[in-house]
């Protein structure tokens, strides 16, 4: 017999109240990250607060200026959305490359961002496109949202409701997938936005981050050649069984170059 509780709130307010009332409870979205972590013994929540009944958190809205994706929208829905394909094709392509079809059919954008896995794909898009993360309490800018390994700017019990991506002039994402899991060994998202060129990297550090030297170089010339000769320090980057920090550092300008090719 497990002591765990399961709640399926029918409103955002009820979900927030449940989350505020129990610090050891976990919001449940697709479960594609929570359930594996529980099996590994990394997580033992007292209760699930399942957002499945909150239809208002699901869906995609787009106009000429921005694309807004509800927190409970699956990766498969983003990948197949004609609106996303038309406005920000690189975002649809990113979603289509997450994990495998089964994971994409359940995993959600809100879960991916709240989780801030160091190798997750969406964080790179959110940072490079200068997206806004909307929660039940406030709107958070992309810069400063990812704080560290599995750590974000979300307060305890705070619930992501939607992510708003401004439509860029042009953008592209290239990931070097770790062949077994399809997570990013390194992924680089390059975008020309209304606030300038932004380059965001995932898979290489404790969480997604921007790379100023590449942004400056591409601001001068938005072309693959601009990445040539740029080398990045590997000091703070990840080393694991899949790749060394030096290899990851080397991949960053290489993938940026491929993104622009």
């Amino acid at each position: 017999m497990s002591a765990m509780a399961y709640h399926r709130p029918s409103s955002l307010a009820e979900a927030a109240k449940l989350a505020a009332g129990d610090p050891d409870a976990r919001i449940l979205a697709g479960g594609q990250s929570i359930l594996p972590s529980m099996k590994l013994g990394l997580l033992a929540p007292s209760a699930f607060i399942d957002l499945a009944a909150l239809g208002e958190l699901r869906g995609i809205r787009a106009d000429r200026k921005s694309v807004t994706v509800g927190a409970m929208t699956t990766h498969a829905a983003v990948a197949a959305s004609p609106e996303v394909m038309a406005a920000i094709p690189s975002l649809a392509k990113l979603a289509a490359g997450i994990g495998d079809p089964q994971v994409r059919n359940r995993g959600t954008i809100g879960g991916s961002l709240a989780n801030s896995d160091p190798a997750a794909d969406y964080p790179a898009a959110v940072l490079a496109l200068n997206a806004t993360i909307r929660t039940n309490r406030r709107a958070l800018p992309a810069d400063g949202f990812f704080k560290g390994l599995f750590e974000t700017a979300l307060a305890p019990g705070e619930i992501i409701t939607a992510v708003e991506f401004p439509v860029p002039n042009t953008a592209s994402y290239v990931k070097f997938p770790q062949p077994a899991s399809r997570f990013a060994l390194v992924g680089v998202f390059v975008a020309q936005t209304s606030t300038g060129v932004r380059v965001a990297v995932t898979g290489a550090g404790p969480c997604a981050f921007r790379v100023k030297v590449l942004e400056d170089a591409l601001a001068r010339r938005y072309a693959p050649q601009a990445c040539e000769g740029i080398s990045l320090p590997s000091g703070d980057l990840n080393t694991d069984i899949h790749a060394s920090a030096e290899y990851r550092a080397h991949l960053i300008p290489v993938l940026a170059q491929r993104a622009l090719a």
């Binding site: 479960g31 594996p36 399942d50």
Partner: peptide
């Protein structure tokens, strides 16, 4: 979907 990665309650 992978049934080992979904709860029945969901």
């Amino acid at each position: 979907v992978k049934s080992c990665n979904v709860l029945v309650a969901q």
